[in-house]
Each structure stands twice: as C-alpha cells, then as structure tokens.
C-alpha cells in the first residue's frame, strides 16, 4: 500500500547521504574529493526530479484531474533547487568554502521542507490514487532514479 512512498522516500535519504559526503570533504578542505563526489549528489537529485516530473506527477495529474495542485507547487520548488544546485556547483569549482556552505545549507533546508510536503502529503496521495498501476510504475521509477 505504501510502495511509492517507500521508494521515493528512500531516494530522498540517499540524496541526503551524497550531500553529506561533499559537506564533509569541503569541511576537511579536501577539494579534490568534494569535486569528485559532487556529481554523484547532483545526478541523484536531478534523476529524482526527472522521475517525478516525467513519470509520477503526470500519472497523478491524469488520475486526479489536479493539474494546478500540489504537483505544480513541487515543480516550482524543483526549479528553485536546480538554481541552488548550480550555485553550489559554481562555488565548488571556485573552491569558495563560504559560498559553497551557504548555498548547500540553503539547498538542504529547501530540500528538506520540500521532502516533508512530499512524504507527508503527496506520496501518500499517490499511493492511494495509483495503487492499480504499481506493476508498471515502480520499475519505471526505479529505472529513472538509477539514471
């Protein structure tokens, strides 16, 4: 009954873990490691957005008829997070620790408040609305999340 919630929530946590690895490297001033690890975080986050925007949200919108509802808000927040991601990546390339930390912290808070909304409200609604489509939906989501 909670397959979509479980899959997507697990992916949120793994994005967090990748971000934590970069933060640790920046704190240790290990710029080489930070720059090597950042793409893993960036790709995981972008794959997650893509899975939602191209697979999960359209199905949900079609099923419920809610095209201007929560999914629209989530898309808007994805745009903001993509901008923060780009700003953090630019700061990392310049090896600007303060700038990187500020952008990454803002991104983290933005991500977490976004995740709370999805995990508490949107995913449970998807679980409810899309229960009959899991067989096709889950493998497709897994494939997109894996990149």
């Amino acid at each position: 009954m909670h397959e979509i919630s479980e899959l997507m929530t697990k992916d949120h946590r793994s994005c967090d873990d990748f971000l934590a690895v970069v933060e640790k490297a920046v704190t240790d001033q290990n710029w080489q490691l930070a720059q090597a690890e950042f793409p893993r975080f960036r790709d995981a986050l972008l794959n997650h957005f893509e899975a939602e925007e191209s697979i999960l949200f359209p199905l949900f919108e079609k099923r419920t008829g809610m095209y201007q509802g929560p999914t629209q808000v989530m898309r808007g927040e994805h745009v903001q997070m993509r901008q923060l991601l780009a700003a953090a990546e630019a700061a990392l390339a310049e090896r600007e620790a303060d700038d990187y930390n500020g952008n990454a912290e803002t991104l983290l808070i933005m991500m977490q408040q976004h995740n709370v909304k999805e995990e508490n409200i949107l995913y449970p609604m998807c679980d409810q609305q899309l229960a009959d489509q899991l067989d096709a939906l889950l493998p497709e989501l897994q494939k997109q999340l894996a990149g």
């Binding site: 745009v79 903001q80 901008q83 700003a87 930390n101 500020g102 912290e105 803002t106 808070i109 933005m110």
Partner: peptide
Amino acid sequence: KIVPFLVWSHLQNLGRGRVFPPNMN
C-alpha cells in the same frame, strides 16, 4: 534556521526566477 530561510524564500519568490537573492547564511 527558520528566520534566515524564510527571508531567503520570500526574496526568492520576489525575484520571480530572474533575480537571485544571496544564500541564507
């Protein structure tokens, strides 16, 4: 945490995706 994030978030909305505020730190 709340106050700097709210300030950033409201400024971000004011910028309408065309002007970006400095980060919350």
